[in-house]
Design a protein around this nucleic acid. Structure first.
Length: 345
DNA sequence: AAGCCGTGGGG
DNA sequence: TCCCCAAGGCT
């Protein structure tokens, strides 16, 4: 790499971003930002939490619905837990939704309704880790924080041709990311790194011919752009099985239960079921003539799941009324269970 | 500190 | 079909 290349890299990146920045509902574009417009910290925070391990395409509609229903942090802080969980249903990683509410209430109650303005202070909020704190500080408050997400790890590992595998190489990648983080326009720099990683410096088949940083990319020079970053191999996913029980009363009521906050699908609504294991025992929630419905296959982060859906027509106390039940309020697995039950109902 | 925690799209 | 993986955080 050429001498003084770090400042050249950030300048080239920002020049590219000024031309190519993607338009997003939570983003203040480079031209508006230069004209003095500032992003709403609430919207920056909400989008960053939704975007944790989640694609932009998946987030868009959720972000729109959340901000229409809860336009500011005070409104969200006053929301019911069940309403937020229902609105989050389908987006995954449900601890984020629980922490989202905790965080909104902390901001409302302990910070006078305003988000803290430094990465260190933001880091203390529930659901806000090193990445999210740095991103909010840079984008909303112009702090030259070093923002390191999966995109930045990939871009930097290629730019500097770092062959050590992740996650061990993360501290070194963070240090190197710091060397190309400018004092001016830190928010645009962070968003430019995301855009570059998402559209040019992609995981497979990076479009190096279009890359504004190609001149200074050691990985490209060494022909390593498609093999970096190296990663530790992933463990195999075991397959678990179980039963799920869908009871529908004569008036259309549905038996649902809320799962405990800890563990898989924590805090979400769903149908009663058995343990999930290699050879699970049936565990109907009450005595009835349970008929087999369809089967459901679903894959989580760390295991495959196959559920045998069982169905009965029976009324029970505590059922959710037909009009109050919306499958869209359930996590995806339970929507699949509901769909698989329909054939037998 | 390594394992746990969803989902949908792309190759 | 199957694997990869996407703007990570928590414990």
């Amino acid at each position: 790499m050429r001498d003084g290349a770090e400042s050249q890299i950030s300048a080239d990146l920002l020049e590219w971003y000024d031309r190519e920045a993607r338009v997003m509902p939570w983003r203040v574009g480079p031209a508006e930002r230069a004209a003095g417009e500032r992003p709403d910290p609430y919207r920056v925070w909400l989008s960053e939490v939704m975007l944790q391990q989640t694609t932009v395409a998946a987030v868009r509609d959720y972000f729109r619905r959340f901000t229409e229903r809860w336009p500011d942090v005070a409104a969200l802080a006053a929301a019911e837990d069940a309403d937020v969980m229902a609105e989050w249903a389908g987006l995954g990683y449900y601890a984020r939704a629980r922490n989202l509410l905790k965080c909104a209430r902390a901001v409302a109650n302990d910070h006078g309704g305003r988000f803290p303005e430094t990465a260190d202070a933001l880091r203390a909020l529930p659901g806000v880790g090193p990445y999210t704190a740095a991103a909010i500080a840079a984008i909303a408050f112009d702090e030259p924080a070093v923002v390191v997400d999966g995109n930045v790890e990939r871009v930097v590992s290629r730019l500097f041709a770092i062959e050590a595998p992740l996650p061990g190489a993360k501290p070194e990648l963070t240090r190197l990311a710091g060397t190309i983080t400018p004092q001016a326009r830190p928010g645009d720099h962070a968003q430019a790194m995301m855009d570059l990683g998402a559209t040019i410096c992609t995981p497979r088949n990076p479009l190096c011919g279009l890359c504004p940083l190609r001149r200074d990319c050691r990985g490209y020079a060494a022909g390593l752009q498609t093999v970096l970053p190296r990663k530790a191999p992933k463990p195999e996913k075991p397959t678990r099985r179980g039963f799920a029980y869908v009871a529908v009363g004569p008036a259309g009521g549905v038996l649902l239960e809320r799962r405990p906050d800890k563990g898989l699908l924590g805090g979400t609504l769903g149908f009663p079921g058995s343990d999930w294991a290699e050879a699970p025992e049936p565990a109907p929630p009450f005595r009835a003539e349970w008929q087999p419905g369809g089967q459901v296959r679903h894959t989580f982060t760390h295991c495959h799941l196959e559920l045998q859906v069982m169905v009965t027509r029976a009324a029970r106390p505590g059922m959710v009324a037909r009009d109050a039940f919306r499958p869209g309020d359930l996590p995806t697995l339970m929507r699949k269970v509901w769909d698989a039950a329909q054939s037998a109902l």
